[in-house]
């Protein structure tokens, strides 16, 4: 009961931060606000029992993203231009998409319902046979690294490529700037 209320309060604060991020024109302040958003998101995820996702959100959202966005700010300057077109069409698209997503949640099974299809399909096999078939004691690690090994390999490739792209962008020198000598 208390937990549900706390999660609701956290989600409401996240919505407020999102509105502030959209309305704020100083990009430096936007980076700082997104860090606050990540902290709230990670706390809400941890309260929802998703400890590994919360850990990732805190490390990536509040840690690395802040540093990468600050690096990007160095290249683009910290004041956002006024948008050239009106915001009616994008707003309408966002509202319609949001309503569709909210409508979609009615088709989902109830939160932590043990009879949900997710828990009846392959999960029992993972739980019972996982340690024997893969030799990994942690079930989550067994699923990610063994049963979904190719999926994880693809994800790692995407993340690695994105990292290389960011490094290539951040290493660009402006004309006239001295090359650092090691």
């Amino acid at each position: 009961m208390i937990e549900t209320g706390a999660i609701a309060a956290l989600l409401a604060m996240m919505a407020a931060v999102a509105v502030a991020v959209v309305r704020q024109r100083n990009l430096f302040a936007v980076v700082v606000l997104t860090t606050a958003y990540s902290f709230l998101m990670a706390t809400a995820l941890a309260a929802l029992d998703a400890a590994d996702v919360a850990m990732t959100e805190a490390a990536v959202g509040a840690g690395i993203s802040t540093v990468l966005l600050l690096g990007a700010l160095h290249l683009v300057g910290s004041l956002e231009m006024k948008p050239s077109a009106g915001s009616a069409v994008p707003l309408a698209i966002v509202v319609v998409t949001g309503l569709l997503v909210a409508y979609g949640t009615y088709g989902l099974p109830a939160f932590s319902d043990p009879d949900a299809p997710m828990h009846r399909h392959v999960a029992p096999r993972y739980l019972q046979e996982g340690p024997k078939e893969t030799g990994v004691p942690n079930v989550v690690t067994a699923v990610l690294a063994s049963y979904r090994g190719f999926d994880t390999l693809g994800e790692t490739t995407v993340v690695f490529t994105a990292g290389i792209g960011v490094i290539a962008l951040l290493r660009r020198r402006r004309p006239g700037e001295q090359e650092d000598k090691p």
């Binding site: 980076v31 700082v32 860090t35 902290f39 805190a58 490390a59 509040a62 840690g63 802040t66 540093v67 600050l70």
Partner: peptide, 9 residues
């Protein structure tokens, strides 16, 4: 992470 983020900013 809080320390890292604040120092970076």
């Amino acid at each position: 992470l809080n320390i890292v983020g604040t120092i970076a900013v």
